[in-house]
Design a protein around this nucleic acid. Structure first.
Lengths: 222, 222
DNA sequence: GCAAAATTAATAGCTAAACTATCATTGATT
DNA sequence: AATCAATGATAGTTTAGCTATTAATTTTGC
């Protein structure tokens, strides 16, 4: 277990009814849900099917999560939390410019070496395919007030501060960050499913090249 | 009825079982669904509730649309189709640069004067809150093959070509367009529900200013 | 090691969404 | 006037989403 895995994400305990990391069944639910969300997609995912995969009952799953939206939110928050942790650990030294470049490498997931395990690759796919559904609900406002999006806001805030340390007068740091973060996920979705909407390339990671250029052209000529 | 309203969008007839514009009930279903999607959101929207609003039965609604996903797709395509039409009509003259600037004005919806009617404002809100759900499904690939996303691809292609006429060597025209299109919708969502993730402003339309600058900084320094 | 407490399994059941089917009625067409 | 398409009215099926109850099992405190 490396440093990143030790990182505790405080929001997670609020989202779940009972901390799934604290019991054997809870851990199986998380593992199973990663596999099943990836396989079925959010719409066709049900607690009944999850219970079968995990070898338990529907009622027992409900003791950990009140509904599948919350379970997805838990997984997505886990992803953001790990990202935040990596950012904190890996961007401690260097010039503002170097720290920003390193940040983009982490955010844009360029080196696929990090995605070693099957689970991490699955989680990445879940985030690409389902993450926006975590926001786009009638419950956004109340969920926001409860603090369910705090981890994501922390990531955005952290990178926005890095941008401001590079360009103190930047008026649009938050917009830049979310444009890059959400945009890059979307481009990966397009590359796989709607290739005419993007520009993928065999030779390079076009998504990475593009967003690095987009950011620094903006900052260096604002 | 102005020019834009006369525009026929060919994809729409494939999405619906029966063309809703051809009958009185069909038109009421479209009107009602715009109001109801806006009010309830995609998740809580049902054909039963729609039937009540429209003054018909669930079974009759099913004679026009096979499911609510298709109905949403129809509405979103209508939105994209109108946008494409406006682009074609309003960017016929001027230098490449001027045409691009006009295009951004249309895409980013800067002049809220276009959003005169209640229905158009509702449709805009539906697109902001629900449009990504049209893509993010397990059925993307088959829907894509059928051609359900053709209208959107046309809009993206049109703007990408404008970009290429301005900068013939631009390698990332499609990525630029989708980043701006989807990004701007998302920023408007954030401005309303998660304001710490964006940079809204009382004085200016920050979304418009930001994306114009983002585009031309990229193109003029690539 | 044992009693109490907490977890889980097993089962049942309820409400509503997402459809499908049937047939009578209306209204437009030739 | 007869016909055909669209709609209304009604009913019914399956499954998702969620709650409740009790018995079995495991964990925990002592």
């Amino acid at each position: 277990m490396n440093l990143v895995d030790r990182f505790q994400i405080p929001v997670l305990e609020q989202i779940a009814i009972r901390n799934p990391q604290s019991t054997n069944l809870g851990k199986r639910i998380i593992e199973g849900s990663i596999a099943l969300f990836d396989e079925l997609g959010f719409e066709h995912f049900t607690f009944k099917k999850l219970a079968q995969v995990v070898g338990t009952t529907e009622a027992s799953v409900y003791r950990y999560f009140s509904c599948k939206q919350k379970l997805l939110l838990y997984l997505v928050n886990w992803y953001w939390g790990r990202l935040e942790c990596r950012l904190l650990l890996e961007t401690q030294s260097g010039s503002p410019r170097e720290r920003l470049e390193k940040t983009l490498q982490i955010l844009l997931n360029s080196n696929s070496a990090d995605l070693a395990s099957t689970n991490e690759r699955r989680l990445q796919r879940i985030v690409i395919h389902e993450a926006p559904k975590v926001f786009l609900t009638k419950a956004v406002d109340s969920d926001h007030q409860i603090g369910y999006y705090q981890t994501y806001a922390d990531v955005v805030g952290f990178v926005a501060n890095l941008i401001k340390s590079y360009k103190p007068n930047c008026k649009y740091a938050q917009m830049l960050v979310t444009t890059i973060l959400e945009g890059s996920l979307q481009q990966r979705f397009f590359a796989q499913h709607l290739p005419e909407l993007t520009n993928s390339s065999e030779q390079e990671d076009a998504v990475h090249v593009f967003y690095v250029q987009l950011l620094f052209n903006f900052l260096d000529h604002e």
